[in-house]
Amino acid sequence: MSAGVKDPLGRTAIGVSVTYAEKTSSGWQGKQEIFFDPESYACLGQIRDDGEIVSARAAWGVVSRPGGRP
C-alpha cells in the first residue's frame, strides 16, 4: 500500500498493488494497481503495469430509485 500516489486522473490517492503470477481468466498476467480516495476509501480506478488504464471513476452519486441519474 502506498499513500500520496496519483490515480489515473491525477488525483491524490492510496494505491494498492496486486500481482497476478499466473494468467487471469481474461489472459492477462502481471501487476495491477488499484486506487482509493484517501478520505472516503471509494475506489477511484485501476491501472496495469503496461500503462493501460483499466478503469477511472470521475464522478458518482446517490439516487432515490433504480435507474435514476444523479
Rank of each mutant, 00 (worst) to 15 (best):
G15Y: 07
S2Y: 08
I14L: 14
V54Q: 08
R69N: 10
Q29E: 13
D7L: 05
I53T: 15
L9Q: 14
V54M: 10
S17A: 13
R65V: 07
A42G: 00
Y20E: 11
M1C: 02
G15V: 06
Y41W: 13
S64K: 14
R48F: 05
P66E: 13
S55H: 00
G10T: 06
G27A: 06
Y20V: 03
A42F: 08
Q46E: 15
I14E: 03
E39I: 04
S2L: 09
I34T: 06
D7T: 01
G15S: 11
G67S: 04
Y41E: 11
T24Y: 04
I14P: 03
P70R: 11
G27D: 07
R11T: 06
G67D: 04
T19Q: 09
S2Q: 11
Q29D: 06
Y20I: 02
G15C: 06
Q32A: 11
E33K: 12
T19C: 10
A42D: 12
Y20S: 10
C43Q: 15
G4T: 05
R69A: 08
A59Y: 12
V18A: 13
A3R: 12
E52D: 13
Q29W: 00
E33G: 04
V62P: 01
G30V: 00
R11P: 00
K31N: 11
V62R: 14
R57M: 13
Y41A: 13
A13M: 04
V54D: 07
M1R: 12
E33M: 09
G61R: 12
V5R: 03
I47W: 01
C43D: 13
D37T: 02
T19E: 07
W28I: 08
D37F: 03
I53S: 06
P66F: 14
R69E: 11
T19H: 07
S40Q: 06
A3I: 01
D50L: 04
G51C: 05
G10R: 04
E39P: 03
A42W: 05
S2N: 10
Y41T: 09
W60T: 09
Y41D: 03
Q32S: 13
R69K: 14
I34E: 04
G51S: 09
I47F: 01
W60D: 14
G15T: 10
W28F: 14
K23L: 07
E22V: 12
A58Y: 09
P66V: 13
A21G: 10
Q32F: 05
